[in-house]
Nucleic acid binder design. Structure first.
Lengths: 138, 138
DNA sequence: ATAAATGCAAAGGGTTTGCAAAGGC
DNA sequence: GCCTTTGCAAACCCTTTGCATTTAT
């Protein structure tokens, strides 16, 4: 909300609720999940408002968007972690994050060896998490 | 077309044209590009037909789908290459492929260290290709 | 009071589906 | 002829946009 004030933007109840849900979440939420969560906390919000608030948060740099190839985007708070990769469970959808310096270097080397000026990369590993491996059916 | 016969599926002109465009392409085509290319070769096809033909080709294993985060899928023939990564130019859209054994191993190790049974992974490096670096505007 | 945010609903892009017509077998 | 494929259009999902209304400042 400091951001909102700094930019002379109205601090509305909806924006605060949406920002709170998104920026304190431990999970990677979709826009729909944000709307549901905000609503379940007593303050219903329209889909458009969620997307508009997300845009603002993305511009502010407080939020980061992810694409796990599901056909829609997910969002996570931009914590202190500069860059990290994702490990996604193909059964329960759980997402774990990890960081790997070697991978950073490797992508730069590969890019340069082919004449590309590396900008960024995206690695997603799909697998079955420990819990889902135990219970055969979840 | 051998596949079609083997599975007792009708060999239609549309399916052959779509398969020909997709399986002989050097580029990573989108569904729309396939439709355009087929049409430009004189045989107009409906969008639905393109998608249905793509489904068949994906099931057959002759075609592989890719997601470069553009909001739609691209397809490439499943050549002999078992698995490879992608290097995408953020200016002209050119896609280069490369293979890296270390990356394969690395993803397995990372996944296992976190209790995941690795299934697959997806790495896309974004950058600016040599040609686009030369000409400032293209 | 002004200027912006909200919410609804309609529109948009990519993809899928229903069904009558066309076509391979 | 039987059965599948085709093609159109409508439907679908996620997201964006238009516009009247509400709200923060």
């Amino acid at each position: 909300m400091a951001y909102l004030r700094e930019h002379n933007l109205p601090v509305t109840a909806q924006r605060l609720a949406i920002a709170d849900v998104l920026l304190t979440s431990e999970r990677h939420l979709s826009a729909e999940e944000v709307a549901q969560e905000v609503s379940s906390r007593g303050r219903a919000v329209g889909t458009a408002t969620v997307y508009r608030a997300i845009d603002t948060l993305l511009e502010s740099g407080l939020l980061v968007e992810r694409d796990f190839g599901e056909g829609f985007r997910r969002f996570e708070p931009a914590r202190d972690i500069p860059h990290h990769e994702h490990l996604v469970c193909t059964q329960c959808g759980k997402v774990e994050e990890f960081r790997d310096e070697r991978l950073e270097r490797m992508t730069t080397i590969v890019a340069e060896s082919r004449g590309f000026a590396r900008q960024r990369h995206r690695l997603v590993i799909h697998g079955v998490c420990r819990e889902c491996q135990r219970g055969t059916a979840g």
